[in-house]
Structure formats: structure tokens, C-alpha cells
Design a protein around this nucleic acid. Structure first.
Lengths: 217, 217
DNA sequence: ATAGAGTCCGACCGATCGGTAGCTATATTG
DNA sequence: CAATATAGCTACCGATCGGTCGGACTCTAT
């Protein structure tokens, strides 16, 4: 059969560990990602697994880095082709909602669950999470500023405020899907985003506080 | 000294366990609420602690019930005196924001952290969380309906949509405070709520998508 | 052909997990 | 005062935690 101790296979083993680890972590949390269970699920030994990372913490960090790659591919890349400013912002939100609705991670967005698990602690894992959120924050904020600059959003818009509210929509969506299995929340998230990112004409939409009835598809 | 084995003292011991357990759980999560650490922190033995609850799960459930009492006292009761409908809704949101900002639980709102920890699992703890969220949901939704009925909110308002968005604001606030220590988020949450719950005249406020500049104090 | 590097394993470590058994000390009840 | 109930203790259980160690094995470089 295939060689089981070659260098090429080792890289693939590392991949398998991280991929499976992501699924496990999104359900059980970064702390619940235990080496024994992960190894058993992969059919390898604990020491064989740990040989690739050294410590559990290194494994957690590797999982978070990989999660960022996936998030980027799922949420940012599909929107990268859109025009800078409001159109791209809307594309990002569409992809973001789709990413949460499809359940790319079985236990919900790994960053959301990890955040609420790691806040109140300290150490490299929490520090990495902070940096990752900060980076995503800056990307979104910059895009909002672009939208304001080229007229997509009204001049008085506060970028940090808008990003704060967009985060809220996505967290509420993640919560509704994961705890209640409520898929109607996808529509609500879409509606909320549509109200936060109005159609091109700044004065075109009266923007009811919570638009009911038929949704804005 | 004080008797150490009386029935009256036992009730107080139980109280101490739950109170300390709440603090621990809000930081470490409901799973990280381990019997050994909790007992050590209280200066009692594991078996002495477990005698009050029987199992860890019973302790978790007791902690959640108590958390609901505290949440109720912090968020609902201060607003109960306000006029039904929009005024009470605004009072609830004010109290809610204050509750999150003051850090009543050191690790952030216990329900928020527990939710993201327990989703993807099953069992009585998750079931209780679902029921508690559901109950709070119904309370908020009913209040929104009242506000619509007595003219505080525009007629087309979708209660579930509005509650969904309010949840998002609070989760985003909890996230910003706990992960980033960002207290400017309190102002942003207030701004977001002010836009979701407009002043009495339904057509009085143009409702910019993300009000910048001076905040609505 | 042989030496070295790297992969993976089984066995094991001390610590901690949730939980149990049996006991002592106290409070309450008669 | 005697009997009962119970709060809390020490000591312990099997399971699992993250992690270490030495060796078996495969590949690669010389």
C-alpha cells in the first residue's frame, strides 16, 4: 500500500489533522479539541499526532490560522471581484450570510464560538483571535470608508458603527441557526443588511426601523 | 464559632456555591465549571459540594436558573415600571446595555457564552438554554407587538425581525467588551438601539443607515 | 551500503476529571 | 437525654487529560 512514514505522507497527515480538528473545534470549542479524541477519530496515535505540532496550543493556533484561510476563501474572495465600496460590501455580507447558513463549520463559525470561549482568558490563543478579529475589522472598516468616499454610503456614516452593527447581525444569525435551528433567520439577516447598506441613491430608501412583511430579496 | 453543619448554614453554603459557580462559569464556560476548582475556591471539599447537587449537570442547571433570576433583576425589573410598548422596550435596552457594560458577570453574559458553548451538543443543559432564550424572546416580541399596537412603532414592523436585530446589537456589544475591552462599543450599542427604536413620531426620524458624528445620547 | 533525518507507534507519566463510600460531627426531634 | 437526620470530611475509584520517551520503520543523502 501507500507508504506510511514518508515525508510526503506526513504533510497530508498534518492536513488531515487540521481539517478534522477544525470540525471538532467548531463543535466542542478550542478547549474541547482534545488530542486523544482527535487522534482516535483519525485512527492514529496521540504521540503521532502531537509530533506534528508539539503542544496542544500549537495545534489550536494552527487550527485558527487555517480557519482564517477558509473564512477568507468563503467570505472575502467571492466578493473581491465586486466594485470597491458599497457593492463589494454587499457582496461580502451576502457571502458571509451564505457561509453561516450553509454551515461551513458544523458547530457554527469557529471564530464566534472561540471568541466567547476565550474571552476572559489570556495567552497566545486569545491574542491570535484578537489579531484576527482586528484584521477583519480593518478590512471591513476600510471598505466602508471607500463606500463613503465614492458616494455609496451617506457622508456622515461612522465606519466603526456600521461594522459594529454588521457584526451583530452575523452573530445573531449564527446564534439563531446553531441554538434554535431557525433558518428563517437567514432572511432576517438579509433584511437587516439591506437596511444597513441602502441602495445606491442615499435618499432613495425610507428605511423603516424593522421592515416587516415581504422581505427584500 | 458559627455551627458548620446546621440546616440553615447548608442553605447558605448552597448559595455560596451557586454564586461562585456563576462567576467561574461566565469565565470558563459551563463545561469549565469543574467541581474540583469550584470546591477549592470555596475552601470546601468536592464531595461536600457535590452533596448539594448530586451531579455536575444539576449544578450547571442550578447555575443557569440563577443566572436567569439575575438577568431578570438586572434587565427586566428596572424597565417593568415604564409604560408598556416602546418606552418599556427602550428601558429594557438601556438596562441590557448597562448590564453588559458593568460586567455583572466577569466573563460576560453567561447566556451568550453558554449558548456558543452548548450549541452543537445535546442534553438537558442545552434544552434549558433553549427554553430560557425562547422565554426571553417571547417577552421581547410581545413588547414589540404592544408597541406596534399603541402606535409607538410603525404598523409594518416585524416583531421577530426587530428582536433578531436587538439580539445582534447586544451580542456585538458583549463581544467588543469581552474580547477587545472596547468600551466605546457601549456608545455604539446605544446608537444602534436608538435607530432601531425610533422616537415616538413614526415619521419623525429619517434614520440614516449608520448614524455617524454626534451620537444620540 | 550506510548513516541520518523524519514519521509514527505503544507504553507510560503525573494531574485532574466526575463521582462514590464510609465516616464524624452537629442540629433537630422526641 | 436518646434517636435520627444530614452537612461535610477523607480517601478513593476508573477515565481521561496533555505530554514524554524509546524504539521501529521508511525515506533520503552520501
Amino acid at each position: 500500500m501507500s507508504p506510511r512514514h514518508s515525508a510526503a505522507e506526513a504533510a497530508r497527515t498534518r492536513e488531515r489533522i487540521i481539517e478534522r480538528g477544525l470540525d471538532l473545534a467548531s463543535v466542542e470549542g478550542l478547549e474541547g479539541l482534545t488530542i486523544g479524541r482527535l487522534a482516535a477519530g483519525l485512527g492514529i496515535s496521540k504521540s503521532g499526532l502531537l509530533g506534528h505540532f508539539g503542544t496542544k496550543q500549537a495545534l489550536q493556533l494552527a487550527a485558527l490560522e487555517r480557519a482564517a484561510v477558509i473564512f477568507n476563501a468563503e467570505v472575502w474572495r467571492p466578493a473581491a471581484g465586486a466594485a470597491p465600496g458599497l457593492p463589494r460590501l454587499r457582496a461580502v455580507c451576502d457571502a458571509w450570510i451564505s457561509y453561516l447558513t450553509r454551515g461551513v463549520f458544523p458547530g457554527g463559525c469557529l471564530f464566534v464560538s472561540s471568541t466567547f470561549e476565550q474571552d476572559g482568558r489570556s495567552g497566545p490563543v486569545r491574542a491570535l483571535l484578537q489579531r484576527q478579529f482586528h484584521a477583519w475589522n480593518r478590512r471591513l472598516t476600510a471598505e466602508v470608508r471607500t463606500a463613503v468616499a465614492n458616494g455609496g454610503l451617506p457622508r456622515g456614516t461612522d465606519p466603526a458603527q456600521l461594522v459594529f452593527e454588521l457584526y451583530g447581525v452575523m452573530m445573531s444569525l449564527n446564534h439563531a441557526i446553531q441554538l434554535h435551528g431557525d433558518h428563517a433567520a437567514t432572511t432576517r439577516a438579509t433584511t437587516a443588511v439591506a437596511r444597513l447598506l441602502p441602495r445606491e441613491g442615499p435618499a432613495a430608501r425610507p428605511a423603516q426601523p424593522a421592515s416587516g412583511g415581504k422581505l427584500a430579496q
